[in-house]
Amino acid sequence: MYSVNYHRASSVADAAKLIKKGDAKFLSGGMTLIPAMKTRLAAPSDLVDLNHIAELKGIKVSGKTVTIGAATTHYEVATDEKLKKVCPAIAELAGLIGDVAVRYRGTIGGSIANNDPAADYPAALMALDATVVTNKRQIPAEKFFKGLFETALKDDEIVTAVTFTAPPKAAYQKFPNPASRYAITGVFVTKGKDGVRVAVTGAGDNGVFRSKEIEAALAKKFDAAALDGVKVPSANMMTDMHASADYRANLVLVMAKRAVTAANAGA
């Protein structure tokens, strides 16, 4: 790691000021940023630590409306009792991220700001039709995630929270990479008053996406059997040493079926 100046921000406003220094970067759980710095692949001049800002922390549930502060850890999301009541799917998703150490440090804000194409939260946010709240504006999830490691965020923009309305039915199924435990393919399905939404992470060659084929089939009948014979095209799937495009396309369908079954069972 190169030497770096560390700043502990006391408020969102303070962080917004501090980020103007040199080539500064926000630090949340550090589960992505710190390893990159240790291997010298990232070399910010300054770090602005967001972990001690009270307004970024915690989960609020009011009726069906859920708001998760950006600095909330995966562990907190996985174990929050109010959240588990209204939207168990997202709590379960958080419990599948990485390993215990990663879940204790990593945060939802850091995860979505990073937008790793194999990260889990992007699928949830897209399927839940969530809104990403920043210190400047509100961005619908669909507009927020833009390809591989790219988001709608400006360099000095801070994710402050994620908010969504919990749907009656939702579930996430993940096929983990056996080494890293990121998603080789993860599928989040929801059925709400605006219909069925199916978001896929890990598989697409341009990051998280909604599967129109699967949504169309499930709109007719929200049942795993409705997906028999559905063709998921492999054209825009990623191929790497862990999985071919064909295999990922297959996993999308298999995980979608399992997710629908789980969503129906959970309702």
Binding site: P178, A179, S180, Y182, H242
Partner: peptide, 8 residues
Amino acid sequence: TASYMDYT
């Protein structure tokens, strides 16, 4: 496969 992210 040069790290535990890829080497299982």
